[in-house]
Amino acid sequence: MEYTNRGIRTGKDRIIFNAVAYLVLGVFALLCVIPFYLVIVASLTSEEAIMREGFSLLVRDFSLEGYEIILNNPATIARAYLNTVTVTVTGTVVSVFMVTMCGYVLQQRSFPWRNKIMMFFYFTTLFSGGLTPYYILCTRYLGFKNKFYALILPSAFSVWNMIIAKNFMRTIPPEIHESAKMDGAGEFRIFLSLILPLAKPLLATLGLFSALGFWNDWYNCMLFIDDKDLYTLQYFLQEMLNSIENLRIVAEKSGIVVPVLPTEAMKMAMTIVVTGPIIFVYPFIQRFFIKGLTIGSVKG
């Protein structure tokens, strides 16, 4: 028997296993990436080429007309970009702050009602009234229709994230809280200046989870927004995919005169505009998402 320096036998079984492993993983990994490549290629191909030969894996007739029309729309696409960025930043800050603070308080042993309040939160994950009453409440009684805050408020707090935060807080030694208390610091002060700096890994993970959620959100926009000035990027893309009419409006506003409306190229260009930042950023942040699976896993 042969042994490698790692103590692994390189027998026939290992060779077959490796062949299967590399092949299957390689193919699946490529399948995960190729569609994005396909969209990039399509976004760079002229409309005639797409009409003639369909989507393909090579750029045959290079053209930027899809991007030109889309990026020539300061009033609409740039607006949607701005909305998405504002929603993402505000939503993430508000959500992480509320979730962390709530999780911290519910982990305090000296807080008498912590278990009862925890059950109060937890029950909402077990039972819900459903979409219908929620929708009618938000639109009819809370006036969410076409309000900017309707894009943030419905996702501004998450019980699941709060549970993660609560579990993370258990890893912070209670002595820190006790000694600060003896020095006369108030609870809120302790949370802000002592606990938050210690919870950086938690803040990073929750922050990125929330930011991704807000960036990718189209649901709130679909439910509550009709005003094009308040569209987010994802919903803008959804509208463009759904009807040629929306594409025509975008093209008209760009002021670029085209003989044929490049519908397919525009859709693909918009897909890239919407996804671009994520594709560039995700390789650097993926480790936080991997950590997110274990960070709050201490059972509370």
Partner: peptide
């Protein structure tokens, strides 16, 4: 890393990709 990419994408974008395929 490659396998994680689709996790970061919204279903709207997936829908656009599915259409192109």
């Amino acid at each position: 890393s490659m396998m994680l990419l689709p996790f970061f994408i919204s279903w709207v974008v997936v829908s656009s990709i599915v259409y192109s395929v």
